[in-house]
Design a protein around this nucleic acid. Structure first.
Lengths: 342, 342
DNA sequence: CTGAAAGCGCTTACAG
DNA sequence: CTGAAAGCGCTTACAG
């Protein structure tokens, strides 16, 4: 049988109020009493019942996270970090993967459960009209996002533009001038702009044939998209000696395609990706990429959300919080001994 | 102000009990009365409070899933599939990653939220004495696991032993006799036994120097573990022409180490992994592995759990449900033209 | 500091 | 059929 606050009170020979004070860290209880209560809690394996608490407080201490999918390591890691941050602050996380058939049901379940707030990991793919965003806002559910998706929603984001510029500048410094770009709607415009800016600063004209941008509907699977797009680039007989892929999975797919076409990386084509997933270091060749400060971003997004939840009258103007990111140079872009053949 | 059942009762001039009967479709109420109540509900925009209901019914329609971590694609996919199955049956999923610092807090939150049931994805790493399993069982929380971790818990599992035997037999058929094994506590004993059985059937004596088994405490990061262990095998000057890694990440880490040591895969060493994560097909070389039927396993584990939740008096004997798995042969183990050098 | 007691909004025996 | 009432497990003024 599950122990209740009454059982603990009886065991510790105090009132339920005192137990409640101890459990909630309200500093009213004599040290001696407190210890007795803690002992009883431990002995009975007491865990407070959230439902009862919720009924009184009208707060569920639950936050929803909507991500496109979990099988992309980037989102998986973000979800882990966000959960960690939330749990330390006493909140529970409910994860929704918006890429599944059941997306609508999952998102609705957030509403039914009366979550205290929602973190949006990018735009909800199945929701072109921001229908859900509007619904959350109508219900006054605090909202925060990982990408700047709506002018009234505070967002946390990496500085995609500048870090993309930096990684492309790294390729340029390696002697490349014919640099291809493979991105998609869902990797965001910032990375493409960074690519274009780097070329502009170096006074290299952009060859639009080398810029490939998949519409998000087409891109369910980044690595496959990278693979197919690179096959296409090769089939189109495009000339290039380097590639900037808008994320690591795209880059890995592209490398696979290059290798199948008999092109070596980095000897024939240098490659850089984005995100620094674990596989970037493990791949062969190890992939030059950009590392996002996921831990910090998770902390920031959680802090912003909890601020909104707990101080609803505070600053309500939506902010954009931008984090710097770091270029990580690895084998896939390093100028090999003997130089490039082109 | 939100309307309560009392407001409705007053409005309809009945008792709260009658309102409750109407709301819950309990057919006890005279048609006339019922209509009056429905009218009042509509007028007041009454929505029952879930928290209050939960407190009495002791059912939250929520299920917890405990996985070691989310950044392993295998667990991420399993989590996605389980969520999909649950949501279609009207349940919400709460995911806990047991590998984080906050593991204890997260698991406790499952108890606080009074989940109706728990799915254990393998043994909880931080819980050597099955303290949590015991706690769930003590509280009569329906429990189901993805690996056979406890004799009283129904489990769903792939047939590790036989599929491991098959993949090692594939290596043997390729002409290999000196086959190394890298596994760990957390990948389970079945895969190692399959390896041993394959050798035994082929009458190849096991060279224990080639069998490496990390204790689970040491193995936080499979790919790194595979990398280091392979470095060690090479440093130990062990003779082998093939490797069976107990999962794909171990295999990938090992390949990385082999390549750094100047050994080519599969020319000098053939490699096979396990799980068929997306990266297995994308890696270079593509990795021979074993594919688990994750969708079916998720469906099965959810069905077993919901059966326990909704028919607690039904079959209570713990079952072991085993799924067959498929060997997927790819480049990393294919005998190259010209044969092996040893 | 600590306890007795009044709820939070709902369900459910138990009477009538 | 319907109502009065006893909880579910917790929090929180209000006394002492």
């Amino acid at each position: 049988m599950k122990a209740t606050i009454k059982d603990v009170a009886r065991e510790a020979k105090v009132s339920t109020a005192t137990v409640s004070f101890v459990v909630n860290g309200i500093d009213k209880v004599k040290k001696n009493t407190k210890e007795r209560v803690l002992l009883a809690i431990q002995k009975l394996n007491y865990v407070p019942d959230q439902a009862a608490r919720t009924m009184i407080k009208k707060k569920t201490k639950t936050v929803g996270l909507i991500v496109p999918l979990l099988t992309n390591e980037y989102w998986a890691e973000l979800a882990e970090q966000i959960q960690e941050e939330l749990i330390l602050r006493g909140y529970t996380l409910m994860i929704c993967t918006a890429g599944m058939k059941s997306a609508e049901l999952t998102i609705n379940s957030l509403l039914e459960r009366n979550v205290d707030g929602v973190i949006l990991g990018g735009r909800i793919v199945s929701d072109p009209d921001d229908h859900y965003i509007q619904m959350f806002m109508d219900r006054r559910i605090p909202l925060v996002s990982i990408a700047p998706i709506h002018k009234d929603v505070t967002s946390v984001w990496g500085d995609n533009l500048n870090s993309s510029r930096e990684v492309v500048e790294h390729l340029i410094q390696q002697g490349h001038t014919k640099i291809a770009y493979i991105g998609s709607m869902s990797t965001g415009i910032g990375r493409e702009l960074g690519y274009r800016n780097a070329l502009a600063i170096a006074e290299i004209p952009v060859d639009e044939a080398l810029v490939r941008n998949g519409k998000s509907e087409e891109v369910h699977n980044f690595s496959q998209y990278g693979y197919q797009t690179m096959k296409q680039l090769v089939a189109d007989k495009c000339e290039f000696t380097a590639l900037f892929g808008a994320n690591d999975l795209i880059a890995i797919g592209a490398i696979k395609a290059l290798q199948e076409s008999g092109l070596r990386v980095p000897h024939d084509v240098a490659v850089a990706g984005f995100d620094d997933i674990a596989m970037a270091a493990l791949y062969s060749p190890a992939i030059t990429t950009v590392k996002q400060p996921i831990g910090e971003m998770a902390g920031s997004v959680v802090a912003a959300l909890i601020e909104q939840i707990e101080q609803p009258d505070g600053q309500s103007i939506a902010r954009k919080i931008t984090f710097p990111m770091t270029v990580v140079v690895r084998e896939s872009s390093i100028f090999p001994k003997g130089g490039y053949k082109n």
